[in-house]
Design a protein around this nucleic acid. Structure first.
Lengths: 202, 202, 202, 202
DNA sequence: GGGTAAGCGAGACGGTACGTCAAGTCTTCCG
DNA sequence: CGGAAGACTTGACGTACCGTCTCGCTTACCC
């Protein structure tokens, strides 16, 4: 939602305040940790950030996008994907960092928004473009490397494999509300590995 | 949310109107098919149902519980679990009917509510008690039967198996917003089966 | 003659409960002493009186008439008019007892209702028929007696005299919110007397 | 150093809309002419004035104050006190214009509010400060002038005289619901004059 | 360095829905 | 059948936010 910056060119007039942008996103994160998305209000964000309401409306079309933007910013610094080592190790690591991200107030909120929205929703689209796709691309790349290196079988349907890794994680966190610890992740990864390299057993 | 019924005894005073209860839940379903949960208002439900607002507030504490109650009612008639035939066939059938339920406006809304709520939330608790647990109990019973009949391995962790069936389904429907057809379900069931009876392959 | 006593015929069915009638009027008086007419509710009266709401609605058409009825009952026991002695003494006494009545929560409330209503109002009419007229008839009778006895002039317009006694009393109590003590009443009566028997002075 | 004059500082933010203020008070007057104070609602005022309810609540604490403010505004243009000529003429004129004011829907309503309220009520206090006191000050000034000019006796208690003018007027209009015409006013003024300059007779 | 243009905070605006409350009505059971 | 209990529909309450709209000001770029 944020505007692109012209590399050198400035349009005339006072430039957007970076301090306000940050204050708004920070306030949003704080408020979501104190109460639910439904209780979150633009007025409270503005007050907490020390900003006028119209400054928020000028740059984001509604509450959902402010939250989503805050989610993206917080995510950039916490999510990454080591691309070295075994497939098993790679996924363990990625799932762990994903679990941390999704289990925050911000993460749960955004997933709740996406799950509750129709498929044509702008939020769902943004979530795909700006978050899910790059995660899935990472995953597919690693699975393909594992196939080329003979770590797993050739014929495997890549999408279903990714779904089997991600699906149970989202499900356990968001629906079952159980903790996701390394024990769960290990069990999950082992079980999925069994289905794609059955000859190896455990 | 509904009151218990005294077997024969009536308390004094005018009895609760069953017609109003049904009209309210029906109106809720209709309105959710026309617009989002956020746009749904108690006033609109009352108007559509031909009912006073206070009749709604007298029996449900907030919008989320009305929606959840409507979900439960609509669910009772569409969800069931055949307990005959092979494990594979059983799950195909259950996942298919679950997909239909979850893919409705009502289903997506309730899942969005649950996902967006904290673990201490009343809605999440009700969703577990009144919906998830019986689904999972069915699943576990069938898996146990399959183990006893030698259809699958003995040592399997039942919970992770259930998660591997349900997780990808929820994920695909709610997060990825892709359709869940019989082809997807077949692939999913086959893949999970591979991980629990690796010797059989496909 | 084996007839039972039927001196006062009963209509068929359960007779009206006198206890309820009294409880309702008593509760009304109590509640009006605790808060204003605007804050008074039929539900509170019913609850305080230990009575069903519909029992109130069966016998009074609205809140105003309940209050007015309570006023009449309380008034019967406190208002009376000695018809002996001088005109001056008579009025001193009547004005004093009127001041007590009007200065109660109930009195102020009823006067407020009457003053705030249009001339066609049912409350205003009832107030005239059941309260004002008998007061004024008393007053006129006494003035006429005083004329016949030569205590005051003959030609006097009786109505304006009554208004000059009552008007300042109502005005001081209800509009000016000042106390009405015997000093005020004495001054008022003296001043009015001056206007109707100017030769005497005081 | 010539300082700029900024004595009339603007507070930040959008300024109050004078148009809305006037529309609200006008709508209140209109509605009160159509129905009673009890039937008057803030929502109806807002709708009639084309204004949001919160604009009303932002500036007036409740319905009574809106009505009272409307009364004050309408009063400013209709009430005045000629300070020339005889005492008798002065009072005739003032009582006449007061009768017109009080006999309007707005006037009766405000008096009803005042009469029905306790002495500690804010409305009663405002009515005294913003309406009654200036009326009474006018009256006393004129009476004093009449005393100095020998028109009436010296020793008179000013307050009781004012009460004898105002009281019967309020009483007749608000309690008796009779019309106040020039005949009544003449009779009243004459009668009161008799009590304060008895030597003149009629 | 004055002019123009946009962003900024504050906060009032016309609105919508909230959740509460009481109104007056209706339905049931009890005595 | 009167009366209690209490659920019903209705509709206003006063509050909270919505998203928009002035304001007076600030901060840039431009000539």
């Amino acid at each position: 939602m944020t505007e692109k910056k012209r590399s050198k060119q400035h349009s005339p007039g006072r430039p957007r305040s970076e301090a306000s942008r940050i204050a708004i996103l920070d306030a949003t994160v704080e408020l979501l940790e104190e109460s639910s998305y439904a209780e979150l209000t633009i007025e409270a964000i503005a007050a907490r950030a020390g900003v006028g309401k119209s400054t928020i409306y000028r740059w984001w079309s509604n509450k959902a996008f402010v939250v989503f933007d805050a989610f993206l910013v917080s995510t950039e610094s916490t999510l990454f994907f080591l691309e070295e080592g075994s497939l098993r190790e790679n996924f363990r690591q990625q799932l762990q960092s994903l679990a941390v991200t999704l289990n925050s107030a911000l993460g749960r909120t955004v997933i709740g928004l996406v799950a509750g929205s129709g498929e044509e929703s702008e939020i769902a689209a943004a979530f795909h473009n700006d978050f899910l796709n790059s995660r899935r691309a990472d995953a597919k790349r690693i699975i393909e490397r594992a196939i080329m290196e003979g770590e797993i079988q050739f014929t495997t349907n890549l999408d279903i494999i990714a779904d089997m890794f991600y699906g149970p994680l989202y499900y356990r966190l968001l629906i079952q509300k159980k903790i996701v610890d390394s024990s769960f992740i290990n069990t999950l990864v082992d079980q999925v590995m069994k289905s794609i390299c059955p000859s190896q057993g455990k």
